[in-house]
């Protein structure tokens, strides 16, 4: 004979019994909300501070307590970046050379626009060349069975295991002694490609292998050469991965600091991170100008991400083959 309690425990063992929630519903929501707010503050806070401080004068910026909401909005930092106007500092006008007055603009501000141009130039070329090189390599490795296919793949991946910094000195020597392109934008493009191509190839191989092989075969039979298969099938179907690669290469190039520091010495090739870091002097740092430059540096990647957002959605292969 089984007792009632035994029967009940048997039922509970076999049926998912609704448990009493750990926290009451209201408390749960409050906890989630406060955690979300904390997280948002963590993510947005620094960006907000960069933006707010870029539209204040140096004097307002360093005041105590800090102005969380700017008192006195000024665009003088941006004006200084985009319309740099060298002021001669004489004994009479010496106050403009004094950061404490709030009007101090370091002369390096005139380098920001050329640096912006360098960054965009290098970034765009790296993005384009990276995708062109990686597409062909990834297609070949993913879809053509050739002798030495696996070793090629491993060789490409192994290069990613070496830290970039370990290669700085040999790289510099090659650039200077053999290619003689130190302090040019081309040296940066070549170097960044070496960083981005292996990774992009790896990403694209994975994506291409997820595209049904029959699609490529159908195109081959329809009359495509391998290059045409790539152009007419793998490129359009793999667009999300291609766009992601474009963004990845551009951002890598845009943010890179150490290699650019080594390979460039003048504004002929220096990129934004190098020039912005130059605002930190031994005696003084113009925070508001650094932050204004920071805002300038943030804008292009954000615009790119927004522009390409709609391409970064998968699901284009849906309907190609029966799932």
């Amino acid at each position: 004979m089984t007792t009632a309690s035994q029967t009940r425990s048997n039922i509970e063992r076999h049926v998912a019994v609704r448990r009493k929630p750990l926290l009451p519903a209201v408390g749960r929501r409050a906890l989630l909300l406060s955690l979300s707010v904390l997280f948002l503050a963590y993510v947005i806070g620094p960006v907000y501070w960069v933006f707010v401080s870029s539209i204040q004068s140096e004097a307002d910026l360093v005041s105590v307590p800090p102005n969380w909401v700017p008192d006195d909005v000024t665009l003088q930092n941006f004006h200084a970046i985009f319309f740099y106007d060298a002021k001669e500092v004489t004994y009479e006008s010496r106050r403009i050379g004094d950061p404490a007055t709030g009007d101090f603009i370091p002369t390096a501000a005139q380098n920001l626009l050329p640096a912006l141009y360098n960054s965009v130039y290098v970034g765009v070329w790296v993005a384009i060349l990276n995708v062109l090189l990686s597409l062909t390599a990834a297609y070949a490795i993913a879809r053509i069975r050739f002798r030495g296919r696996r070793p090629t793949l491993y060789l490409i991946l192994v290069t990613r295991a070496i830290p970039d910094i370990a290669l700085v000195v040999p790289l510099f020597l090659v650039m200077r002694n053999f290619l003689d392109i130190v302090n040019t934008r081309e040296s940066l493009i070549i170097t960044y490609l070496a960083v981005t191509v292996p990774f992009t190839v790896f990403i694209l191989i994975n994506y291409f292998e997820s595209i049904p092989a029959d699609l490529g075969k159908a195109a081959r039979v329809d009359g495509c050469s391998h290059l045409q298969v790539l152009r007419h099938v793998y490129l359009p179907v793999g667009m999300p991965a291609v766009v992601a690669s474009l963004l990845f290469a551009f951002l890598t190039s845009w943010n890179e600091f150490v290699l650019a520091l080594m390979l460039t010495s003048t504004i002929a090739a220096q990129t934004l991170p190098i020039v912005i870091s130059g605002f930190v002097f031994d005696f003084t740092t113009s925070f508001s100008l650094v932050n204004a430059a920071g805002v300038v540096a943030i804008v292009p990647p954000v615009v790119l991400a927004i522009l390409f957002e709609r391409y970064i959605v998968s699901g284009l292969t849906a309907g190609a083959v029966k799932g």
């Binding site: 029959d214 699609l215 075969k217 195109a219 081959r220 039979v221 329809d222 099938v233 190609a320 029966k322």
Partner: peptide, 20 residues
């Protein structure tokens, strides 16, 4: 001879239509 020079046509189990 590569497939695109063989004057053949092929139909696949998965249909393999170009999705775009």
């Amino acid at each position: 001879v590569p497939p695109h020079r063989r004057d053949i046509a092929m139909v696949f189990q998965s249909y393999a239509l170009y999705p775009q």
